[in-house]
Simulated assay, not measured.
Amino acid sequence: MKQLVETIAKALVDHPEEVRVNEIVTEKAIVFELSVAPSDMGKIIGKQGRVAKSLRTVVSAAALQEQKRVTIEIV
């Protein structure tokens, strides 16, 4: 799942080498902290948060297999 978030994020930004994904696992949830270069922040968030919402939707659909709640935080 971490690889999925990282791959999608790298495809969206101008500086893919600065994409970092930190995974925090608890009993019922998985939190991914996504950090990118400051100049790429707008590309990850998108207009009115549409790109971020789409990224969260894709990861949530992939997380149905693990029966855990998945959250993406853009740092």
Rank of each mutant, 00 (worst) to 15 (best):
Ile45Val: 15
Val36His: 07
Ile24Leu: 14
Lys47Arg: 15
Ser39Val: 07
Asn22Ser: 11
Glu66Gln: 06
Val5Gly: 09
Val21Leu: 06
Ala61Val: 07
Glu23Trp: 04
Arg20Gln: 15
Arg50Trp: 00
Met41Cys: 04
Thr57Val: 00
Lys68Gly: 05
Ile24Asn: 12
Val51Ile: 13
Ile44Met: 10
Ala61Leu: 12
Ala9Ile: 02
Val75Ile: 12
Val59Pro: 10
Gln48Thr: 07
Thr71Asp: 13
Val59Trp: 01
Val75Glu: 11
Ala62Ile: 03
Thr26Glu: 11
Thr7His: 13
Val19Glu: 08
Val75Ser: 14
Leu55Ser: 02
Val75Ala: 10
Val31Phe: 14
Pro16Glu: 07
Ala52Glu: 15
Thr57Lys: 08
Lys2Gly: 11
Glu6Cys: 01
Arg20Val: 11
Lys28Gly: 07
Val25Gly: 06
Gln67Asn: 14
Lys68Trp: 01
Ser39Arg: 12
Glu33Val: 04
Gly42Leu: 05
Thr57His: 07
Val25Pro: 09
Lys2Ile: 06
Ala62Leu: 03
Glu27Gly: 01
Ile74Glu: 07
Gln48Asn: 11
Leu12Gln: 04
His15Glu: 13
Ala11Lys: 06
Gln3Met: 09
Glu27Leu: 07
Leu4Arg: 14
Lys43Leu: 07
Glu6Asn: 03
Ser54Asp: 09
Glu73Gln: 13
Asp14Trp: 00
Ser60Ala: 09
Ile74Asn: 07
Ser35Met: 07
Arg69Leu: 09
Asp40Tyr: 01
Ala63Leu: 03
Lys10Gln: 15
Met41Val: 11
Ile44Leu: 08
Asn22Gln: 10
Ala63Ile: 04
Gln67Asp: 12
Glu73Phe: 01
Asp40Pro: 03
Val51His: 01
Gly42Cys: 00
Met41Asp: 03
Glu66Val: 06
Ile72Leu: 15
Ser39Glu: 13
Lys43Met: 10
Gly49Cys: 10
Ala29Thr: 09
Gly46Pro: 07
Ser60His: 05
Glu18His: 08
Val21Arg: 13
Val36Pro: 12
Thr57Arg: 08
Lys28Asn: 13
Pro38Asp: 11
Thr7Arg: 14
Gln67Thr: 04
Val51Trp: 04
Gln65Ala: 04
Gly42Ala: 05
Leu4Val: 05
Glu73Pro: 04
Lys43Phe: 00
Lys47Leu: 08
Asn22His: 08
Ala11Pro: 07
Glu23Pro: 15
Leu55Gln: 02
Glu17Gly: 02
Arg50Leu: 12
Leu34Gln: 05
Glu6Leu: 03
Val31Ala: 12
Ala29Asp: 15
